[in-house]
Design a protein around this nucleic acid. Sequence first.
RNA 1: UGGGGCGUCGUCAAGCGGUAAGACACAGGAUUUUGGUUCCUGCAUCCGGAGGUUCGAAUCCUCCCGCCCCAGCCA
Length: 561
Amino acid sequence: MKDPETSMPSNFIRNIIEEDLKTNRHQGRVATRFPPEPNGYLHIGHAKSICLNFGLAADYNGTCNLRFDDTNPSKEDTEYVESIETDVRWLGFDWEDRLYYASDYFEKFHEYAVDLIKASKAYVCSLSPDQIREYRGTLTEPGKNSPFRNRSVEENLALFERMRAGEIDEGACVLRAKIDMASANLNLRDPVIFRIKHEAHHRTGSRWCIYPMYDYAHCISDALEGITHSICTLEFEDHRPLYDWCLDQLNVPCHPQQIEFARLNLSYTIMSKRKLLKLVQSGLVNGWDDPRMPTISGMRRRGYTPVSIRNFCERIGVAKRDSVVDLALLEYCVREDLNKIAPRVMAVLNPLRVVIENYPEDRVEMLDAVNNPEDPSMGIRQVPFSRVLFIEQDDFMEDPPKKYFRLAPGQEVRLRYAYYITCVNVIKNEAGDIVELRCVYDPESRGGTTADGRKVRGTLHWVSARHSISAEVRLYDRLFNRENPDAGGADFTEHLNPRSLEVLTECRMEPSLGAVEPGSRYQFERLGYFCAEPVEFSKDRPVFNRTVTLKDSWARIAQKG
RNA sequence: UGGGGCGUCGUCAAGCGGUAAGACACAGGAUUUUGGUUCCUGCAUCCGGAGGUUCGAAUCCUCCCGCCCCAGCCA
């Protein structure tokens, strides 16, 4: 996928751009834009578009604008524009001074509409919404001309002026482009380009009561900004003739080329803004930034890094065929980054008390532990060891299967960076639950090795009971238990994974974890990558979110039996 | 049944007439004080199907099949 000379991934959009550059099609410029509608939070699918648009600009020495496509006041809000700016910046992209709003062009849109009317290319149609639909025809039958299609320029101008002045009710009339009611492309059957909405806009307030439609506003916005390559998703392919038609009628600065690519689909995930909104509004998740959400803010809160998301977006490629990317690739990308940068630390999620019988009651040793074996520059730290410890409940089995090389009666294991221990007794309560393990340690094994060089297969993480802090850990898993939550007719909410969040409140951790920065990321050895809860973490109540587990080949072996 | 797209490994995805890249996943093996990481090895005689053109086709032509999108005064 990489071109050996440039080391850039190859895709059809790059091919188009390179061809355009070669033929000097846009005066050798590359100008893209990311044009979100501020009606929801950005998700991983938007990240694909952001990486594409900003990435192309960066690679071809061009520019990428951030433009809010805010032409529908009923759905949009400043809360969303703020979150979008935050998320794009967090992903690592910079629009410099090129922050635009379609609403800044409202006056222009109006002027161009007047031009269209004067050229008899647009008319005010007084059909009702229902009638417009009837007149539009169907997929297989042509539409009929509106009875208002041949109003005079003067009448249209006057009516359009009255629309703008607020003298006409919503729905009573619209401005339509005069194209071809018999076109096989429904988008060309005299599309509405301005509608009346007596509604305040989050930026223009009550200055306007007519608002432009997407097809009309988007192409003009692109042209006004000097965009060369207007990249959008596949469903707009049918709209391209309209995009081109508008620009061809108008005296605009340039004519950008629209290029469509397939939007991202991810297994076990939904990407529709409407459905994500439903999850939020119904309380099925805790807001747009719930760590289970595929939103940028949710992933940030979950512990994902910008680097990992950018790498993911590069690896999935760009093409025109509908596809569903395996969630495993996303997880691979976070692990890859976190493996390099996350300090290792020991935390016990489900503590099991271990008493080292031959270790002195009052003794405490500070043992050296490596912060990151992948990066020696991250140094070492000291962890306290004492007679009473906690290990993971999963790391002990009274009657272990073959190939289980963790702790079991009579079986020797290594406590990471500490000593070899052997279990000599198992203490249970009346219910038969294991409540404590009695072990003995080998004083000669300090640090985790012995002079005799004997092999110990299992290495466990642990924490000194007396020195550990207690903390809450939120184990996040995929939100849906179906690869395609939308398949099979049933409502997608029926496929929610009931175990997408498990909260553990009795976890015990290395003391240093009590005072870390919210949002900071760690590898809990042998368990996974976790981050200090970005908004709720406090010294009084440490909370960690699991970003992703470590690969667990033991789980695979154990499952096979 | 109209129009617009798309069909290459389980999942993404290069390839643009010269004889199927890469990544993830998966399966083996080596190293390992994380059953993590790393490292080897394997994994499409075949490119939706059938014909045709050609010395030669995933790439060109023809027909067929399948999937996606379009009938908002949403974007």
